[in-house]
Nucleic acid binder design. Structure first.
Length: 341
DNA sequence: AATCGAAGCAACCGCATACAG
DNA sequence: GCTGTATGCGGTTGCTTCGAT
């Protein structure tokens, strides 16, 4: 109930521990165990509060502590567990022998959180962030402005925009070609009936694309030009656009027309469970998967990238499994695809 | 070489919970 | 059941290190 008074006492040392203090604490615990943490400092001859001693022991001096870099396996475990448990660091630490909750918390805050954000995932929900698209027109306009500032030609700029838009159109077309089907080797569960991994991927790809644009917001040379019109209306006059089925407000100026959506594709909630396992796979792990996928089902996200890159090459189909040739054949025969690619 | 800012990490703070009297 | 104490936990702070300018 009440708050611990143990650290209220004045005159107790705070701050970093010295090697001498460490030695005293270790020797005492090895000899007597920690017993009551409150009583320990006096018994061990330390001018610290019990809380501080406990923390030092559990986070640093305990003999079974594993120090050094986190392995990829540990990283994946943390991501998986965090997607289920949230910020329950001690619960997560209990699954990682030798790692402390404090260490995991720090690792999360300094590495994994940023990594997820960079990949376009919300670190708290582990789901793709889609809110960024509401500001897409502004970001494109900012990119436009930056290009002008950098004295690039308008033609070059338009070409780049078209290339990016074409890339997104390809992704949209993949959504169209691969209707949602649960893969045989995994169990995809969702709170709604709308499942589509590729739709999610296009969000991620676009998010990464936009990350570089978003950084321009903070550029002094851009932010100081407050009088410039960065609104979506500044892009009016460019007639052609791709209507993204799951992003109704998104309008990308380009010369490409995406095929009409076959069925509604939504970047909706999804959870992927590992084969035979009960723990959900985090989006990060899902994105990192290198398992070959049957081409009739939604592929792991990273492989879509190489898929898209090889769309124009009919001969490059060997890395997508046995059924790939016929699927790519169908894909490349589709006149709609040729319009895009 | 000096300065500055970002990143990493150890440690602290305060709240929540368990438990004993 | 109530109260006070001990401990655990998660958020936050601040120091140190490192790299860029």
């Amino acid at each position: 109930m009440g708050r611990s008074p143990c650290c209220d006492e004045t005159g107790l040392k705070k701050g970093p521990w010295t090697p001498e203090e460490d030695q005293k604490l270790v020797k005492h615990i090895q000899k007597h165990g920690h017993g009551s943490w409150r009583a320990l400092p006096k018994l061990a001859g330390l001018n610290r509060c019990g809380k501080s001693c406990r923390l030092r022991w559990t986070n640093y001096l305990r003999p079974d502590i594993k120090r050094g870099k986190f392995s990829e396996e540990e990283e994946q475990t943390i991501l998986n567990l965090h997607s289920v448990l949230g910020n329950k660091w001690s619960a997560i630490a209990s699954h990682l022998p030798g790692r402390t909750d404090n260490e995991i918390k720090n690792f999360w805050n300094t590495h994994l959180k940023k990594k997820l954000i960079q990949m376009g995932f919300d670190p708290m929900t582990h789901r793709p962030r889609t809110d960024i698209f509401s500001s897409l027109p502004n970001l494109i306009a900012l990119a436009n402005l930056k290009e002008l500032i950098d004295h690039h030609s308008l033609e070059e700029h338009a070409l780049r925009l078209q290339t990016e838009a074409a890339q997104m159109a390809k992704l949209q077309y993949l959504q169209y070609l691969f209707p949602p089907q649960p893969p045989a080797s995994s169990n995809i569960a969702t709170s709604s009936n709308q499942i589509n991994n590729i739709g999610t991927f296009s969000d991620i790809e676009a998010f990464n694309l936009l990350n570089s644009l978003a950084s321009l917001k903070d550029s002094p040379s851009v932010s100081s030009l407050s009088q410039l019109d960065l609104s979506a209306s500044s892009l009016q006059g460019i007639n052609d656009s791709i209507p993204f089925s799951h992003l109704p407000d998104l309008q990308i100026p380009c010369n490409y027309q995406a095929p009409p959506p076959k069925g509604m594709v939504q970047a909706s909630e999804f959870t992927v469970f590992s084969q035979g396992g009960n723990s959900p796979i985090s989006p990060f792990q899902f994105a990192s998967s290198s398992t070959p996928f049957p081409p009739s089902v939604a592929p792991p996200v990273t492989q879509i990238s190489s898929m898209v890159n090889s769309l124009g090459d009919a001969s490059s189909n060997s890395s997508y499994g046995e059924e790939a040739p016929s699927v790519w054949h169908d894909l490349l025969e589709d006149p709609m695809f040729h319009d895009i690619a």
